[in-house]
């Protein structure tokens, strides 16, 4: 068989789906950026780059939402990843009752995101949930108040919900990677006197590195684009303190019905995620040398 033709054969079924149902719609969606949609007449008018000028010059909410996106994504990801890795190592190590406990720990990943939002709204509400009383008892708050209505700390509400939801993702992926490492490698290493932390640093970490990079890359992109929890919990408020670019796009498209400008905002977000993705992709290619 022709060597250069072979990989495309394996990729073909997948690419067909992606081309028809993702790429074509994506290009159409991007093209909206060059049109101004008129709701009353239902028509659209080609405006070229006019709306791109708007985002650069006169949109303060965009800047706020950009800073918030950075905080939301990095904080959520930090806790999801560190806790997820810790849990994966614990589960890989094994303990009594693991068969029963492991599926229970994966439950949050299965909860639809709007329900996660609603659930945590109740947890944070002093009328229905216990958390404000816990914070008061811990001395974090003077009175049991709703953190979601405090502009300085509101973002921690959706972040908590997001961390709760996202830990299992990292745990499952990293656990699967840990399980695929042949045990003989550790046995051979321990015969050579390598064990414990050293084995983790020089065997485990390099072997699960591809999974770590790919999950971090994908998750960051998803979290940055993940609007549902915030929309349900705070809808970007109070005073835009939880407005991220993704919620702002949603707001622009479906509340203000300004699809053209929403597409411009999407392209801006896409552009920033691309820079992030390429940086990590570059690191991953470098890493392949070790494996």
């Amino acid at each position: 068989m022709n060597k250069s033709f072979e990989p495309w054969l394996y990729l073909a079924p997948m690419l067909l789906f992606i081309l028809l149902l993702v790429l074509v719609p994506l290009i159409t969606g991007i093209s909206y950026a060059f049109y101004n949609f008129d709701l009353i007449s239902g028509t659209r008018e080609f405006v070229g780059l006019d709306q791109f000028i708007r985002i650069l010059n006169e949109d303060e909410i965009f800047l706020t939402s950009l800073v918030n996106t950075l905080f939301w994504t990095s904080t959520s990801l930090f806790f999801q990843f560190t806790l997820g890795l810790a849990l994966a190592l614990l589960l890989n190590n094994g303990f009594r009752g693991i068969k029963l406990i492991q599926p229970v720990l994966f439950v949050p990943w299965a909860v639809p995101s709007f329900l996660i939002g609603l659930m945590w709204v109740w947890m944070f509400n002093p009328v229905t949930g216990p958390l404000p009383y816990l914070f008061e008892w811990l001395g974090l708050m003077d009175l049991p108040e709703n953190i979601l209505s405090d502009p300085d700390h509101a973002m921690w509400g959706p972040i908590t919900a997001n961390v709760w939801f996202g830990i299992p993702f990292f745990t499952i992926m990293l656990l699967a990677a840990l399980r695929s490492i042949p045990r003989e490698i550790y046995e051979a290493a321990s015969m050579d006197g390598v064990s414990g932390l050293q084995a983790f640093r020089h065997i485990t970490l390099p072997l699960i590195a591809p999974t770590i990079i790919i999950t971090l890359m994908i998750r960051a992109i998803w979290v940055a684009n993940f609007a549902e929890i915030i929309i349900v919990m705070t809808n970007g408020g109070p005073a835009n303190s939880t407005q991220i670019v993704a919620t702002y796009i949603y707001d622009t498209a479906y509340q203000k019905m300004d699809f053209g400008y929403a597409s411009v905002l999407s392209i801006a977000l896409l552009f920033m995620l691309m820079i992030y993705g390429f940086t990590l992709g570059h690191i991953r290619r470098k890493m392949k040398v070790y494996i």
């Binding site: 992606i18 028809l20 149902l21 993702v22 790429l23 074509v24 719609p25 994506l26 159409t28 969606g29 991007i30 909206y32 890359m217 994908i218 992109i221 998803w222 684009n225 609007a227 993704a246 796009i249 949603y250 498209a253 479906y254 699809f259 929403a262 597409s263 999407s266 977000l269 896409l270 995620l273 691309m274 993705g277 390429f278 992709g281």
Partner: peptide
């Protein structure tokens, strides 16, 4: 790169085009 790009564009913007497909 194309596969990665598909993950980056907000879903809300592709709903109408997918509906057409």
């Amino acid at each position: 790169i194309i596969l990665l790009l598909t993950q980056m564009f907000p879903i809300v913007m592709v709903i109408a085009p997918i509906y057409n497909v």
